[in-house]
Design a protein around this nucleic acid. Structure first.
Length: 318
RNA sequence: GCCUGGGUAGCUCAGUCGGUAGAGCAGUAGACUGAAAAUCUACGUGUCGGUGGUUCAAUUCCGCCCCUAGGCA
């Protein structure tokens, strides 16, 4: 049985993924599956740059607005729902087009990653958190070394977040994280065409500056206030999103607004860089370079042609 | 005009009781299996404002000059 065809459009924030994906969906009869850890949440529209419903050109979008910003969400949940969405789209005879910048989510969808049965447990987490505060990162890492030596070797002692996760899994006697690890990238579940949309650094950074400016002009501050008003805790996972945590600092702690906006721009640049690092190791990825031609606007004309050519060559389309 | 702080890495600053200097942030590269827009790792030569002097040796002490913040006029 042949693997189902699926297209991935990845890339750093503000690179123009969403528009490109929409163009593609129109051309080949596709539906969009968002791979974005923040667009998941309802009520977080401006700061996550969701394509407004009015601009979706009648193309169905999946994995957007599927979670409550007051509750935690996880890759594992994403994996389950996104795969269901793929099946649904395929059953309609359409092509799934995965678009987004969260590399881990894309991987979770595409590859046979096994997140195990151990759910993130707030109680255990809090317990280790306390342990960390009292005894330090070294001791925490030592605990892990005792029950799951291999994970301990893999993880840097300062990466306490991962160390705590490994401890959670290990102490539930599931064999530990290390036993479920495989070289997942070797075996995609789909016949996929994986694209990374790329542009010259300076141009990308300029687009980011501009996008943040536009978000502020469109009422990002009001959006954050509304979320806080609706009972989203400032420490909630959703509030760790870029733009949200910085504006919380302004609203709750009186940080200067212009300083916060600059911080958002800077951290978004940092983020874009990390995204590129992540995608670089995706062996299957085909890089599409856009821009640098002077027009900051549309990546679409030239890049879109390239995209279609490749899809033809892979006989995704006839 | 006078007085007092400052002028050191792209930015904020530490430091050298005289032996040519180092943190944070930024930046770059990397990692990443239920928090991933998160979390973590590695990478630090710059006329130490200019110019004279003292000294074996000055970014460090002294003189003058320039710039800057504040105070007094």
């Amino acid at each position: 049985m042949a693997k189902p065809k699926l297209v991935v459009i990845a890339g750093p924030t503000a690179s123009g993924k969403s528009d490109l994906a929409l163009d593609l969906c129109e051309a080949i009869g596709g539906e969009i599956i968002s791979a974005d850890s923040m667009q998941i949440y309802r009520g977080m529209d401006i700061g996550t740059a969701k394509t407004p419903p009015g601009d979706r050109r009648g193309i169905p979008h999946h994995m957007i607005d599927v979670a409550d910003p007051r509750c935690p969400f996880s890759v594992a949940m994403y994996q389950t729902s996104a795969r269901a969405a793929v099946c649904e789209i395929l059953s309609r005879g359409k092509t799934p087009v995965v678009a987004g910048g969260t590399g881990l989510y894309i991987d979770a969808l595409l590859y046979p990653m096994d997140f195990g049965r151990v759910t993130g447990d707030p109680t255990a987490r809090a317990r280790w958190e306390t342990y960390l505060a009292e005894k330090g990162a070294g001791a925490l890492h030592g605990e892990l070394a005792r029950i799951d030596a291999e994970s301990a070797r893999r993880l840097h002692a300062n990466d306490t977040r991962r160390v705590i996760r490994a401890l959670e899994v290990a102490e539930r006697g599931d064999g530990g994280l290390s036993e479920t690890r495989i070289d997942y990238r070797a075996a995609s579940l789909y016949n996929c065409a994986y694209f990374v949309l790329d542009r010259p650094r300076e141009e990308l950074y300029a687009l980011i500056r501009e996008r943040v400016r536009r978000m502020m002009a469109s009422g990002l501050l009001t959006e954050v206030q509304a979320l806080l008003g609706a009972g989203v805790a400032p420490g909630a996972q959703s509030m760790q999103g870029l733009g949200y945590k910085e504006l919380c600092a302004h609203i709750l702690h009186g940080e200067r607004l212009d300083a916060c906006v600059e911080l958002i721009q800077q951290r978004t640049r940092n983020y874009a860089k990390r995204q590129l690092t992540y995608f670089r190791r995706e062996n299957a990825a085909m890089w599409l370079s856009a821009g640098s031609s002077g027009d900051t606007q549309a990546a679409s004309p030239p890049v879109f042609e390239k995209l279609l050519t490749i899809l033809h060559a892979k006989s995704f389309i006839s």
